[in-house]
Design a protein around this nucleic acid. Structure first.
Lengths: 157, 157
DNA sequence: TATTTTTTGTTGTATGTGCAACAAAATTGG
DNA sequence: CCAATTTTGTTGCACATACAACAAAAAATA
């Protein structure tokens, strides 16, 4: 069932596209909402961990966060003990936008799950979590420069 | 269950990232594999429909396809009756890469579904298809410049 | 048929994305 | 403690992405 990944890609691109259009009026450019919500929910997180959380390149996260800082949504604070890391915190402006992002995301969830029973919602949530856990190992592996070996493949063309 | 969309986003980004890294050695730059497989599977399709199929902006598709043409993976052919459209076809080079892309995608599916029973695979396939059908309506709506109305929202913060 | 609207495709501009390469602090291992 | 490795962050460059605006053909409507 190769269709699964295509459906998944379509859903992800469509919803991301919608979010980006909708958040433009709050001066959040493409993708920034992803970072901002997570900084609000994990104050003090560092950008390296945030990139892993979102599954995006370290340098992409770095630039997105720099821009969020410049635009006053978050601030970076130096750590007392560790001179290398910069902890991320939402500003008041960032905290004000947070519920708007949540509301939009909730709406997108609601739309995506129209016609789903409560059981089905739970089912897909659990199955997606398991998929994510599976995929995240390969992502770490490949991101570190390793090469995947297709031998285990079922070969279902 | 707002988690659903986050899990979905993580999976999609992680797998896309892996694919892009793996296809680089076949001279396919970021995202191009998406278009190429679909041209191979739908010879004669026009780029407007392809963009809808993939859920990507028309202009993005236009540029990706132009590049695929320049690099010899596909070719654009004028239609006899309709002077406006350009039908897309894979070249031999494109057809040669196709099975490689399929193989990689199959492997990614396999990895993503490790530990899933056959029933679970079918379940998630069906649920994702339904989600996609739901989401695609909103995508069309918003892409045409309309504004979504959050009133129907369950409000599950 | 003539006019309007929709479809399809392109280009300009701005910005996101990610790899390579670098630097400095922290950690690990001898 | 010192050297090697890992972690964390940055910048240069190349390229993807998408909105706005335009153009031309086709389709719809009057």
């Amino acid at each position: 069932m190769n269709e699964i990944l295509r459906e998944l890609g379509m859903i992800a691109r469509a919803l991301d596209s919608i979010s980006n259009i909708e958040f433009k009026e709050y001066d959040l450019t493409k993708g920034q909402y992803l970072y901002l919500v997570r900084v609000c929910e994990n104050p003090g997180i560092i950008q390296e961990k945030l990139a892993e959380m979102i599954k995006v390149d370290r340098t992409t996260a770095a630039r997105a966060l720099k821009k969020l800082e410049i635009n006053g949504f978050i601030e970076k604070k130096n750590d007392q003990k560790n001179k290398k890391i910069k902890k991320l915190f939402p500003t008041e402006k960032g905290l004000n936008v947070y519920p708007i992002i949540r509301r939009e995301n909730d709406y997108s969830s609601t739309v995506a799950l129209v016609g789903f029973s409560e059981t089905e919602e739970e089912t897909i949530c659990n199955l997606l979590r398991r998929m994510r856990e599976n995929v995240e190992k390969d992502w770490d592996f490949v991101k570190k420069g390793n090469k995947r070996n297709y031998l285990l493949c079922k070969g279902e063309t």
